[in-house]
Design a binder for these strands. Sequence first.
DNA 1: TTGAAAGCGCTAACAT
DNA 2: ATGTTAGCGCTTTCAA
Lengths: 353, 353
Amino acid sequence: MTDEKIVPMNEDIEIPPRRPLTLKDVSEASGVSEMTVSRVLRNRGDVSEATREKVLQAAKSLGYVPNKIAGALASSRVNLVAVVIPSLSNMVFPEVLTGVSEVLDETPLQPVVGVTNYLPEKEEEVLFEMLSWRPSGVIIAGLEHTDASRAMLKAAGVPVVEIMDVDGEPIDAVVGISHRRAGREMARAIVKAGYQNIGFLGTKMPLDHRARKRFEGFTEALAKEGVEVMDQEFYSGGSALAKGREMTETILNRSPDIDFLYYSNDMIGAGGLLYCLDNSIDVPGQVGLAGFNGVDLLEGLPRKLATMDSGRLEIGREAARIIAARIDGTEETGGRRVELTPKLEVGETLRRR
Amino acid sequence: MTDEKIVPMNEDIEIPPRRPLTLKDVSEASGVSEMTVSRVLRNRGDVSEATREKVLQAAKSLGYVPNKIAGALASSRVNLVAVVIPSLSNMVFPEVLTGVSEVLDETPLQPVVGVTNYLPEKEEEVLFEMLSWRPSGVIIAGLEHTDASRAMLKAAGVPVVEIMDVDGEPIDAVVGISHRRAGREMARAIVKAGYQNIGFLGTKMPLDHRARKRFEGFTEALAKEGVEVMDQEFYSGGSALAKGREMTETILNRSPDIDFLYYSNDMIGAGGLLYCLDNSIDVPGQVGLAGFNGVDLLEGLPRKLATMDSGRLEIGREAARIIAARIDGTEETGGRRVELTPKLEVGETLRRR
DNA sequence: TTGAAAGCGCTAACAT
DNA sequence: ATGTTAGCGCTTTCAA
C-alpha cells in the first residue's frame, strides 16, 4: 500500500466563512491593482482596453457585487432619493411613485420609499431614518411637518421637494395642485349647474390636510354663492367602495332634500354612484355626484363620475426632474414652485345647463 | 469719529461650507469621547446617567443625524431588507408591502422597495443595485429569475424569501399560494356548479408566471372533467375595469354560447360584472363570473364577484417574519416553505346547486 | 495608463 | 464607566 495522504475528517480544517467579495479579490484574480479595478468598474479615467477586459472578466466570473456602503462613505456620494408618503393603500401614492421611478430610471438615482401612515411623529421617525443614509434628495408629501422634521429637512443640505399640495410655505421646492382651489372650482361648477342642497362625504382624517383644504375651499366658494353644505358624513377604514355606498344611503335617508353629493375621493364617489343606480336614483337629474382624483377606475363605471384630476403621475415626474436637475448641477437655485392646474372632468354625473 | 472696525465686504472670509455633523461634533459639544457618544446614541454598554444626559442634550441641540453609511461599514450590519416586486400599479403589491412594513415596523429592520416591471433583466439590475447595499435579507416576488439573479441571491449570504407563488424550486424560503391549485379549484367549482361553456379573460403578459400557472391549472382541471376552454381574450394597459367591460362584450359577442367567464383578476372581473348588469345579462343564471385575488373593492359591487383570495397581506407578513426571525437568530435553518391556502369566495356570481 | 497612501465616519475590541 | 486604536471597503489625491 502506498502511503496515501489521509485527511482526517474532524480536523480543524479552516473553512473560510463565505465572506462577501471585495475589490481586493477582483484585484488578485485579475492581477491588477485595486485602484484600477475600481476605475474599470466605474468607467472612470483611462484604462487600457486589455486591463479593462481582464478586470471585467474577473469580476464577472467571481460574481463580484460592489459594496455601495463603502463607496458612498469614501466618496460621500449617495445615489438615493428619499420619497416619503403617507400611505400605500391609497392608489394615489403608488401612482406618484410610478412617476418618480419613471424619471429616476433615466438617471443614476434610485428612490427609497418611506411610509408615514399620515402620522406626523411617524413622519419624523421615517425622515430621521432616511436622512441617516444621507440621500441626495428628498421628495415628501405635503407641506405640514413637525418643527423637528422641518429642521432636519433644512439641515440636510440636499434638495427637498414637497409634493401634492401648494397651499402653504414650502421648505424648498414644491410641486402640486392647490387643493383649496380644487374645492372652490368644484363648488362653483356645482352651483352653476343649478344644485343647491349639497352634501359632503369624506374620510375621518384630521391629518389629511389636502382633503381638509379641499373642503375649506369648497365651503368658502359655496358661501360666496350663498350656499351652505347641508349635511356631511365621514368614514374610516374598510373598503372605500362599500363605504361610499353606505354613507350615501345614510346621508340621503337623513337629508332627503339633498341634490348633490361631493365626495373627497373617487372611490367612495364610485360607491355612491353604484348605490344611486341600484336604487333607481336619477343621476345627475335627481342627485348629482362628484369625486376627486381622476383615477382610471372611473373609465369603467356605468356612468362616468365627475371629478377633478389631481395629476399624481405628473407630480411624481416633475418632483423627480427637479431633484435630478439639482443634483447634476443643471439647475442651480432652489425653491422652484410648480403649480399644476387640476382639471375638472364633468363626466356624466353633473348635469349640464 | 471713533475708529470703528470696518469689515470690508469682499474679503476672503472663510464661510465654512455647511458640512453634515459628525460624532466628533457631538463629542466636542458635550466634552465626552466619540466612543461614549456612540454608545449613548445606540444605547449600548454602560454609560452613567449624567453623561448620557449631556450627550443626548448636545446631539439634540446640534440636530445631529447619525451617518448610517459609516455605521454600516464599521459594523457590517445593515438594517435594510430588499423587497423586489414587479409593479406598484397592481394593488396586490402595495398590499404585500403593507404586510411587510407592518411586521418590520416592530423590528429595527427597514424595507427598501425595488420595482421590476415584470422584466427579468430589470429584475437582475434592481437586484444587483439593492444587493450592493448589502441588505440583511431579500424578499422577492416569484420563483422565476434569470440565472444571474439566482446566483446573486445565493451568493448574497442572507436570507431570501420568494413570495406569492409556491409552484417551483425556491432558492431558500418561500411563502405563497399554489396558483396551479387555485386555477384547478376554481375550475372544479365552476364545473360542479353546472357550467360547461367556459371563457377565459386575462392579461397579455407572458411574463406573469402566476397568471400563467393559474390558467394551466384551470385548463388541466377542466380537461379532467372533459371540458375545454371555449374562447379566450387578452388585454394590456389601460383601465382594468374598462378593459373588463370591453373584453366581456367582445367575447360574448364572438361566442354567444358561453355560460361562464373566468377572469385572471378581480378588476377585469368587476368590469365584466358591470357590463353584464348594464346589459341585463342574468348573473349567475345566464352567465357566471369569477375573478382572482379577493380585493376589497369587491365588497362594494352590486353583486359580490366570486373569487379566490390570494392572501397578499398575510404573505407579506409571513415573509417579513421569516426574515426577521432569521436575522435575530431565532430561526436557524433556511428553506422554510409556507403554503397558504387560497380560499374560494363563492360570492353571488357563481350559481349554487 | 497605473499604483500607493490617506482617509470617509463610524464601531469592535481592547485598554484603563 | 470611559477612552484608545485599528480597521470596515471603497475613492480621492497625488505620484510615477
